[in-house]
Simulated assay, not measured.
Amino acid sequence: MIAPLPTNCGDACRAQALRDLNDLDALAHDPRTIDLIRSGRTMGCFYIESPAMRSLLKRLDCSTYEMVVAASSIIRPGVAESGMMQAFIERHFDPSKIEYAHPALEETLYETYGVMIYQEDVLRVACRVGGLTLGEADLLRRAISAKGRGKETMDRLTAKFFASCRRGGIAEETAAEIWRQIASFASYSFCKGHSAAFAVLSFQCAYIKARWPAEFLASVLNNGGGFYGPAAYIQEARRFGLRVLGPDVNRSERRYTGDSAEGWLRVGLKAIRGMTRERTEPIVRARRERPYAGLEDFLARSGAGQEEARTLILAGALDCFGQTRPQLSLDLDLCFGQRPAAGQPEMFA
């Protein structure tokens, strides 16, 4: 699984990124990638871009691949709502707070500070403490998540769990607490392999963003964004010190473009409301022969009609001709032998 490479960062950039992204061990120890993740500057980076996830990365001071794997699971509703996410964070920074509901859980939950955060944890605890077979433990997991065999199966497995705890000398109160933890999040938890795969792709995205933020954010915008709308990613570009350049018929491509070395992100013509592929491709194609010299040259060679040209004027895409937008609008009407039109529609989709 490989993160989508920036589409416009040049052959050398793409070749280097492809080599590095395939070296997952080096990726997990890359200082720039880790710095970006631990600071929560991960907008656009797949599973770790939501506000809650970015906050969690900072709270955990997340500096390893393994911790990103864990974070990808503890952010899930079951762990968070059961109070175990907060317990995990506290124990991460203060090992003296690590405790196990029963000594038998230490070997099973040592890696996660005594907290069940993966589906595998539920299965192992149900087997080790509750005396269930692995098959029964999986039935329990599915029954809790309403994907199992119904109430009868759930009642049978619950009874067996508590009976096994009693035979093992586990206090009723302790057994009830273990059961509460199992039931509170089993329906929402990830298996560890799922979290690990999400973390790989998130690391790959973070690696690209740390090195080529302009190209990365251009690709995110071209792919329709992720958790956020386009305006949020534009603001993120500014936070990364990039100049955001408006649409320009003599410089913009159809899609967003960026150059991290030069420090800019440019809005593509497709971002303008109503400018479809059929309308923008002829504009870009004619421009590649030679730049447009002015409004009349643009109208003659681009195939744009009056309304398309007006839309581009109001969006600032014809500012490159050195005239004000009111003057361009007036000249446009004169070119088509009409009086100036009133009203300005919203420009950007």
Rank of each mutant, 00 (worst) to 15 (best):
Y113K: 02
I74D: 02
E136H: 04
G148S: 03
S252Y: 14
V284S: 09
R277F: 14
T257V: 10
L242W: 04
L265K: 09
I2K: 14
V220W: 06
N250C: 11
Q235S: 08
A159D: 12
G131A: 11
S302M: 14
A183S: 05
K58A: 07
S202A: 15
R32W: 10
F240R: 01
D30P: 07
C45D: 09
R141W: 09
V68W: 03
Y113G: 01
A232I: 12
G305K: 11
P291R: 13
E172M: 00
P282D: 14
R91E: 03
S96A: 08
W264I: 07
H29K: 14
E106R: 15
I208C: 02
F190D: 04
R166H: 10
L105W: 00
A183V: 10
D11H: 07
D30Y: 11
L265T: 03
H102D: 14
G193N: 09
R166K: 15
T174F: 10
R255F: 15
M67I: 07
G263H: 06
A26I: 10
A271W: 13
L105V: 05
D297P: 08
V69R: 06
E346W: 01
V68I: 07
E215L: 01
A15V: 13
F348A: 02
E152Y: 01
Q16T: 12
F348Y: 11
R41D: 12
V79T: 12
V200D: 00
C45Q: 04
Y113C: 11
E172W: 06
A218G: 07
R290C: 08
A199T: 06
P103R: 09
Y113M: 08
G246L: 12
C165L: 03
A12S: 13
R273H: 13
K147S: 00
S189D: 01
G83Q: 00
Y207F: 13
Q235L: 13
A300F: 14
K270N: 11
D121Y: 07
G10Y: 08
R279V: 00
I98C: 08
G168Q: 15
L18V: 11
C165D: 09
I313Y: 00
T311Y: 04
R243V: 06
A80N: 04
P291W: 12
R285H: 10
F321K: 05
R310I: 08
L60D: 01
D35F: 04
C191L: 04
M1D: 14
I37A: 01
R288G: 02
F336C: 10
R254G: 03
R128W: 02
F336T: 07
S55I: 04
Q327N: 14
A271S: 15
L157D: 03
G44C: 10
E49P: 03
A171Q: 00
S145V: 03
R91K: 08
R287H: 08
A87R: 14
A163N: 12
G337A: 14
G225Q: 05
H194L: 06
V122L: 11
E281P: 06
I313H: 02
P4L: 14
E262K: 15
L328R: 07
R180M: 01
E49G: 02
Q323N: 02
G225C: 06
G246D: 06
S63L: 00
S39T: 11
A101C: 10
R142L: 12
T153Q: 12
R41M: 10
W179E: 03
A293M: 10
M67G: 00
A231C: 03
A237K: 07
R141G: 02
G305D: 15
R32Y: 09
E66M: 07
P103Y: 12
G343N: 06
N22V: 15
